[in-house]
Design a protein around this nucleic acid. Structure first.
Lengths: 133, 133
DNA sequence: GTCCATGCAAACGATTTGCATGCGT
DNA sequence: ACGCATGCAAATCGTTTGCATGGAC
């Protein structure tokens, strides 16, 4: 699985144990908010402080290691940076799935007179298992 | 232009002058955050308090009169509820344009095994006039 | 050894709450 | 007249900051 140390060094950040722990928490969860990162990381490093998480989340965003996923009403979640993709958010169970932006989709989203740098697409609804229950 | 009193009554909310002022501020701006609403509304009703805005924003969201537009990094903006649409957000000048979800787009976004209730699509980039400068 | 990162506690700012009064119905 | 809405001030919560110490390079 991903080597968090290299990920940090390649982004010009020192590889501290706090940072690799935060990345691990994000990677394992897929999409996770600050408090959840704190809960997760505290088990491995009980002395890690919330302030450190806040400082590093900002830093890692600036350095392109992670990205913010603003959530309707709730606190933003974070994910490791990867290709642009769509989020499918289940309103019933809360799980978030990723879905690719296919060439077809990309074409459909093209817009005259506006040059797209990146897209942020959240589709809210019901996942398969929640549809069935 | 929209009749804010009816809009409120149809949503089972009392039509107070504070509420119509808030709706007017949102409608005129198109997309606006809490502080901007406050600045705008204070000119018409200097006694209107921030607490009232917060309370009503939550209420009007619950009653489907307005919707939240979560913004990357910044404070959420709000807009009057209307058909699902795409937001084109200029990273240079900050303006937000709306763009329709055409049948073609809708089709491209369809997803197997996920039932979409509503979509939240923000495309970040450069608007025409900022591309030119 | 140097410089940056961490962790604590204090500061700050945004949002929420409780309650007495006012207003829409 | 009734019950909800408002506005103030206080309380609360999330986030940021300053600074002394520790750790990565």
């Amino acid at each position: 699985m991903t080597n968090y140390i290299d990920l940090l060094k390649n982004s010009n950040l020192k590889a501290t144990i706090q940072r690799t722990s935060i990345l691990q928490a994000i990677d394992q969860a897929g999409h996770i908010n600050i408090d959840e990162i704190y809960d997760h990381v505290k088990e491995l490093y009980p002395t890690l402080s919330l302030a450190t998480i806040y400082k590093n989340i900002i830093l890692m965003q600036q350095n392109g290691v992670i990205i913010e996923v603003p959530m309707n009403g709730e606190k933003s979640k974070y994910e490791l940076k990867k290709e642009d993709h769509i989020h499918l958010i289940c309103q019933s169970c809360g799980t978030i799935q990723d879905s690719k932006i296919t060439p077809n989709r990309q074409k459909a989203l093209k817009i005259e007179n506006f040059q797209i740098k990146y897209s942020q697409i959240n589709l809210y609804g019901l996942c398969l298992s929640c549809q069935q229950s």
